[in-house]
Simulated scan of single mutants.
Amino acid sequence: MPDPYALGIRLGIARGSREMWTGSASTGLLHRRIEDLVEHLLRADRYPYGVVLATGTCLVPESDFTLRPGDEVRIEIDGLGRLVTP
């Protein structure tokens, strides 16, 4: 990954064929450097090889939005790929 702080992120939520919510962001919006997050994670515990550090995103639907059975959540990150979750 040439620059982990320059990745576009797109999130979409579909209900059937209708797009219910979309948003986009960039890893350039991270408040802390990845190295700092890893250092903090490892400060108190030992973790197995392959552990995943999840930072979340700033992509959050309005507070009155609720997922329903059958909704499809799609997230795509430049250079990494796309994950679709029903």
Rank of each mutant, 00 (worst) to 15 (best):
L37E: 03
R43G: 00
L29E: 14
I13Y: 05
W21C: 03
E19G: 09
R43C: 01
H40R: 11
L29K: 11
E19W: 12
R43Y: 03
R10D: 14
P48Q: 10
L7C: 04
L37N: 08
S17W: 05
R10W: 01
Y47T: 12
R46Y: 03
T27H: 09
R46E: 11
G23A: 07
R43T: 06
R32S: 14
P48E: 13
G28F: 03
G12F: 01
E39Y: 04
R10T: 13
I9S: 09
E35D: 15
E39I: 12
R18G: 05
L7Y: 06
R33V: 00
H40N: 09
S24V: 06
A25E: 12
G8N: 12
D36Y: 12
L29Y: 06
D45M: 10
I9P: 09
S17N: 12
S26H: 04
L7G: 00
L30Y: 09
R46H: 08
R33C: 00
I9R: 01
Y49F: 13
Y47L: 15
L11P: 00
A25W: 11
T27R: 10
R43W: 01
R46K: 10
V38G: 02
S24Y: 00
E35P: 05
R18A: 03
Y49E: 10
G23K: 06
R43S: 08
H40M: 06
D45L: 11
T27K: 09
D45G: 04
Y47E: 08
L42M: 08
L11S: 12
I34Y: 10
T27P: 04
D45C: 08
E35S: 15
R32F: 15
S24F: 01
S17R: 14
R46C: 08
L29T: 11
L42H: 05
I34T: 02
P48L: 03
G12E: 09
A14E: 10
A25T: 14
V38T: 07
L29F: 11
E35V: 13
G23F: 04
V38P: 01
V38Y: 06
G8C: 02
S24K: 10
V38R: 09
G16H: 09
G16Y: 09
